[in-house]
Amino acid sequence: MEISVVNLKKYYGEKQVLDIEELTIEKGKITGLIGPNGSGKSTLMNIISGIDLDFFGTIRYDGKPLDRSIYMNMTLVFQKPYLFRRRVYENIEYPLKVRGMDKGERIKKVENIIKRFEIEELREKKAHRLSGGESQKVSLARALIFEPKLLLLDEPTSNIDPESIKIMEREILRFNQETKGTVLIVTHNIEQSKRLCHNIIYLENGKVGYLE
């Protein structure tokens, strides 16, 4: 899914936190979003994901305005994952359930992704009792399960163990290659952006500057 942002302005009270004249996120590519703390990265992610609707300007998804079908085809993985108070299996299954997929197919898909993320031993655990790295993996698996056309990741690998990071990066790349899904990822880690991203957007004080 291609995202085009035009004349986006966002205020918190009097303070302007985003001022983007034009920005395009390329379809089928992994785009990194970097910049110092407080530059507006998370705010931009919330706006693109359709969670924050309180802004001025236009955002188009493959040329169309936000509607229910677009909501159904994109997702945002938060910096601090919120997992539901139920088992890991049910957490990952949730997006398929709200899409009305039948049970047999759901089981196949969930089992498959659990295997790929190497979290078989977490399967039956209560999700709200997991460690940080475990939670992030489950949270990413839950986002990828329904193969969104746009995947938004807000620092998904900060403060977690290297082994988990490796798995997550591998799955992000695989998702991008296999489904041609567009990815926008906020990261502080230059090495990570080199490993993953085709393009990089640099955000400072709510304004955009392109980098190589």
Binding site: S49, G50, I51, R68, Y71, M72, M74, T75, L76, F78, Y82, F84, R85, R86, Y94, P95, V98, R99, R142, A143, F146
Partner: peptide, 24 residues
């Protein structure tokens, strides 16, 4: 609010969100 945000981002509709919030 937080539950609603996560639910929305996973594709839950209005009714789904209410059920989800009650369960949470």
């Amino acid at each position: 609010k937080e539950i609603e945000k996560v639910g929305t981002s996973l594709g839950a509709g209005r009714g789904d969100i209410i059920v989800l919030t009650i369960k949470e």
